[in-house]
Design a protein around this nucleic acid. Sequence first.
DNA 1: ACAATACTTGACTCAATCAGTCGGGATTCT
DNA 2: AGAATCCCGACTGATTGAGTCAAGTATTGT
Lengths: 153, 153
Amino acid sequence: MKLSQRGEYALRALLVMGMNHGPGVIRIKDIAQQQNIPRRFLEQILNDLKSAGFVQSKRGVAGGYRLQRGPGEISLADIIRHLEGPLAPVGCVSVNYYQRCSCPDEGKCAIRSVMQEVRDAIVGVLEGVSVAHLCDRVRDLQGPLENPLDYVI
Amino acid sequence: MKLSQRGEYALRALLVMGMNHGPGVIRIKDIAQQQNIPRRFLEQILNDLKSAGFVQSKRGVAGGYRLQRGPGEISLADIIRHLEGPLAPVGCVSVNYYQRCSCPDEGKCAIRSVMQEVRDAIVGVLEGVSVAHLCDRVRDLQGPLENPLDYVI
DNA sequence: ACAATACTTGACTCAATCAGTCGGGATTCT
DNA sequence: AGAATCCCGACTGATTGAGTCAAGTATTGT
């Protein structure tokens, strides 16, 4: 699994939305400025996240984006799978994007058995972390702040 | 970490050399045929592995390749790092290929802290497996065979 | 009503990487 | 000498990554 720029931007944007989760929406422009993401590119990314059901949008003057589900219900594994495809290092051990490889017998492939373990290790971490967990980490890492809005992602 | 075709071929070739480790060499042609790898492409790959010190070669009529170090001394982590670059999903948590990312404070980056864990999980598996271990797995997975040369990778 | 604000959609560019291919040169064994 | 084998660099064609851009549609404050 390799996280592309696109993927990293998506996570950062989702994290901003997680930190400000509530009934209101956040403008794309604000996310872009706060996180130093090219605005046009971010539009594209958020659109993608929207059609995947991770976020919802509101148009017009007071428009913007917000998380569709609660931050506790979105795991990083889900997000990254949607954005980057398989978490597994090779297709033949991927559960969600399985692809047969050229070796004669997968059941007896030693390389595959190692890659299986790698996959499990990656998935183990990523399934266990939700956007809400990420928010918790942000708060833990920041320590006590005077202004609770004054955080860094 | 994503394993490219090139990387997979390299592992398969190294595994063949591991299974036949001894004073003699193996012809590139034989590896290519046995593993169904395009010969010219494999030449390129083995050349790379040679200049990295994983294998050594012998030219001329009875020429070929063999492992330079013992199969127990080459970890998959080393091989893949050489072939594919960083094992980490993002540059800012890579030990061997560190690259600063654009977030304002790495020490307080929640995403980074998760990626750190992913990296550790991947490296944990891959550092622990050598070519010799791979060979053991081949033998385990095959079960008892009539002809000990009749194995699959 | 209407202008301003913000999201929407699809096409487009530019560079890098991947997966090979190819031609010919250098060595070594017989 | 001649065949087998490795050695080396250049080349190609397809795909992906990171953005950019233009023109459009919906919503709302006044």
